[in-house]
Design a binder for these strands. Structure first.
Lengths: 217, 217
DNA sequence: CGGTTAATTGAACGCATTCAACACGAGTGG
DNA sequence: CCACTCGTGTTGAATGCGTTCAATTAACCG
């Protein structure tokens, strides 16, 4: 059973169309079950992935088991366009999902090095953009600000008034550098102030945008 | 008066020669005094900078005055290779420094030059690498681990056994997402265990590499 | 030498974590 | 229909890490 994800997500830029078309033409359709690993951290970059349905998280583990989530990906996003030879994070299916897979060498052969390089540069730029924003989030924000910012980021661009979250509390926590308990507390706090509503654990609606925005700084 | 900075810094890769040559050929030499702003946060990205001597910090301020330092740059490094149209961070001279400046449009005019494109991709790649490492640092590390990691990162690649720090405690703190007091406490703690030595506030020597490395995880 | 800034140290506080218990919903099988 | 389980989310109480505020010391530069 598949949840309804925001098909046009919060990020504006889309991957270069040349690569997208190429993937639609020669990509191999694969499915991954919830929590299944699509590629592993430190593994050689061999494939390019285009997410068709479902959602994905990239995640990095430290030796003692602490998790840091890099980002979340939604239908239409390209994964695996890494600048280096190996994956810095691993990619895991957040929910059952379908991806188009194509060998990097195939892309090179068909689209040419220049096109691939261009796509990689664009993807790297987008990635850098996100990561820098994430950096600010992690560095000097309180738990309140982090959670408020998270909700805002996921509400913006979602055309529905009630937003569906693809991830659970643990993934939110590992993205924000917090614990699930703290995330939960901040959420109840926001609900107590009637700033957001949660009809269910994974669906929310922002009632007071201004209040939320001014919490983020 | 200028301090002696590690001229060959802790990062191994250097920008590809195409950029270097370009900048050497058409770049304008400029000097900035200590704490002077090279470019401002939210300003349009107009120039590319190559650091000749001295060192630079990139920094972002929130409305209520909290500082987050993006990174430190040393001679040979490229600055201003931003993904977006405007600077996400501002760039400030950590010490008096000399930079070569060239217009971005000039670089773009020469784009298509495969070597140049390659160089930009590499530089962006390196940037992404750093920022992602920084992300992990900020997300799930203790003060101890942060400071230990910082010292290690700055000692690696410095061929001297005693390392000179280009930045003061406040900049260290704002890079690590800590306060100066906490940074200071962690440093004294490391000295108490004879893991590092500080002949002066800005010069240190690692005595027990293994101990330090195992603190970082 | 002073004068000024930077760094260290101490004590009290507070935010987020930890550990533990409880609530809720979905799925299963009697 | 209820009882049971399992995964997930919430809530409570106690602890602790890092901060805050304040005072002291060290480094730098005229």
């Amino acid at each position: 059973m598949t949840l309804a994800y925001p098909l046009d997500d919060h990020r504006v830029q889309r991957p270069a169309s040349a690569i997208t078309e190429l993937m639609d033409r020669v990509g191999v359709r694969m499915t991954f079950a919830r929590n299944e690993e699509i590629y592993a951290q430190d593994e050689q970059v061999e494939f390019l992935y285009r997410l068709i349905s479902g959602s994905v998280r990239t995640i990095r583990l430290t030796s003692d088991g602490r998790r840091q989530i890099g980002d979340f990906y939604y239908p239409g996003d390209l994964l695996g366009l890494e600048p280096g030879p190996e994956h810095r994070f691993s990619g895991e299916a957040l929910s059952d999902c379908v991806v188009l897979v194509v060998k990097r060498t195939t892309v090179q052969a068909l689209a040419g090095d220049a096109a691939l390089d261009q796509a990689i540069l664009e993807a790297t730029h987008r990635e850098l953009d996100r990561v820098q924003a994430h950096l600010l989030l992690l560095g000097r924000k309180t738990a309140q600000e982090k959670v408020a910012g998270f909700l805002l980021a996921h509400a913006e661009g979602a055309d529905e008034t009630t937003v569906e979250l693809a991830m659970g509390r643990q993934d939110m926590a590992d993205y924000l550098g917090l614990t699930i308990e703290t995330v939960s507390r901040m959420l109840t706090q926001l609900q107590a102030q009637a700033i957001v509503e949660f009809p269910s654990a994974r669906r929310f609606r922002i009632c007071k945008w201004e209040r939320l925005e001014q919490m983020v700084q």
